[in-house]
Amino acid sequence: LQLFIKTLTGKTSTVEMEPSDTIENLKAKIQDKEGIPPDQQRLIFAGKQLEDGRTLSDYNIQKESTLHLVL
């Protein structure tokens, strides 16, 4: 599924993920695209901070969801 990652600067990146992927996997993919180390990334979806060990489906993240990346 395609996700949009929006940064505080207003920049939006697109990443392709599976519902079974963990937040950790997602942060690794963001690191590949943006060069931001996972330990500096905080991802927010629906007002919640996402935890590394959980999966996208745990948070009911659907295709074309927008996640907010806070550093």
Rank of each mutant, 00 (worst) to 15 (best):
S57Y: 08
E16Y: 15
S65V: 07
E24L: 14
S13D: 05
Q49E: 15
T55L: 10
K48N: 09
E34D: 09
K27G: 00
G10E: 03
F45L: 05
Y59N: 02
V15H: 05
L8F: 12
L50G: 00
G35N: 07
G47A: 03
K63Q: 14
E16A: 09
P19T: 08
T22L: 10
L50E: 00
L50V: 04
Y59I: 03
T66S: 05
Y59E: 02
Q40R: 13
G53W: 13
T12S: 08
D58Q: 07
I30L: 08
R54Y: 13
R54W: 10
T55V: 07
T12R: 07
K27Y: 03
I36D: 02
E18I: 09
S57F: 10
D32L: 14
I44P: 00
S13L: 15
F4Y: 13
I44W: 15
L69T: 01
I36Y: 13
Q49R: 09
M17H: 04
L43M: 03
E18N: 13
L1V: 09
L8Y: 13
S13I: 15
P19F: 09
A46C: 08
A46R: 14
D58F: 15
L8A: 13
S57N: 10
Y59H: 03
I61H: 02
P19Q: 08
T66W: 08
E24W: 14
E51G: 04
A46G: 12
E24M: 13
D32E: 14
N25K: 15
S65H: 06
D32F: 11
T9A: 12
I5L: 05
E16D: 09
I5K: 01
Q2G: 04
T66M: 08
E18W: 13
M17T: 05
L50F: 01
Q62M: 11
K29H: 06
D58H: 12
Q2A: 07
E51A: 08
Q41T: 05
T7I: 12
L8Q: 12
N25G: 08
T14W: 11
P19S: 12
I44C: 11
K48D: 06
I44L: 12
T9R: 11
I5C: 03
K63C: 06
T7C: 13
F45V: 03
K11N: 09
L50N: 00
L43R: 00
N25P: 01
G35K: 06
M17N: 02
P19A: 11
G53F: 11
V15W: 08
G53P: 06
T7R: 13
E51T: 06
G35I: 02
D39G: 12
K6T: 11
K27I: 03
K33T: 12
S20V: 05
K63N: 15
R42K: 12
L8M: 13
T14Y: 11
Q40L: 11
S13A: 11
N25L: 14
H68T: 14
K48A: 09
L50W: 01
L56P: 02
P38R: 14
D58I: 03
K6Q: 10
T66K: 04
T14D: 04
F45C: 02
